[in-house]
Amino acid sequence: MVKQVKPDLDVRIGKLDLKNPVMVASGTFGYGEEFVDFIDLKKLGAIVTKTITVSPRLGNLPPRTCETPAGMLNSIGLENPGIDKFIAEKLPSLKKLDIPVIVSIASIEDPDEFTVLARQLDKIKEVSALELNISCPNLHKDKLISQDAKDTFELVSLVRKVTGKCLITKLSPNVISISEIALAAEAAGSDAVALINTLGGMSIDVDKRQPKIASWSGGLSGPAIRPVAVKMVWEAHNKIKIPIIGMGGIMDTQSALEFFIAGASAISVGTANFINPRASIEIISGLKAYMADNNMRNLSVLIGSLKACKD
């Protein structure tokens, strides 16, 4: 009789210990409350909140989303209640879940807004980590912070000075070299990188000759971008030492596995939450089954286990 191993799914992301490597991506899960009817949130490895800014934001004009081949575009524009209301109204229920809460933060005008947010969140014990969203494509900027290695280094260094919390830097795929940006984040003291944010995209209604979303263009997500994301995780994994949280079109266990094999230490389920609210939970059990079938006792055997093609 073959003795099956009992796989251990726990993983360490910088200063953060996760009981399993499956998180939900920022902007696709609200603050968790919309999903309580469908899943047991306590089973998640971590929750990454919708991005918070210093002041409340109304967000962009509707229509804000449209479907594309095997994907979707969105331009929500970081609609959020602002940090004070988030702490007062959204955080209490997240705290009760007893799972790591990763708060995504962004600046709108001045990079110093990041330090204002980080200082405020640094004081809250239940906030396990901060995700620096320096890659949102929907703020009508000519250039994102994460599209420049120097800007990325400076921003991460700035936040690093004001908080001891685990820092995750979320990067844009719209760059020439993802490893160059990931190296800059690492050098500035980021504990991990999250790869990838959405890809810039556009879709046109040819009858009206108008863009399908009011902000002209938006961020592309879903299975359509998965190969782009997997390659970027693999590229970064070959260059950096800090852990990678992989995301981009993960729909199920198979697609999640691609990211681990490419070098991700954890993954985030994003757009799939919209279609199958149970996707994240199904991936946790699917991952366990795959590891047991392949005699993997822990995740370190799986992470970055990619081999060259052979006949």
Partner: peptide, 17 residues
């Protein structure tokens, strides 16, 4: 009626003023 991505209130895609 509005195009929706999630239908459960999470994505903030189908808003009206």
């Amino acid at each position: 009626e509005e195009h929706m991505a999630c239908g459960i209130g999470a994505c903030l895609g189908c808003v009206v003023a």
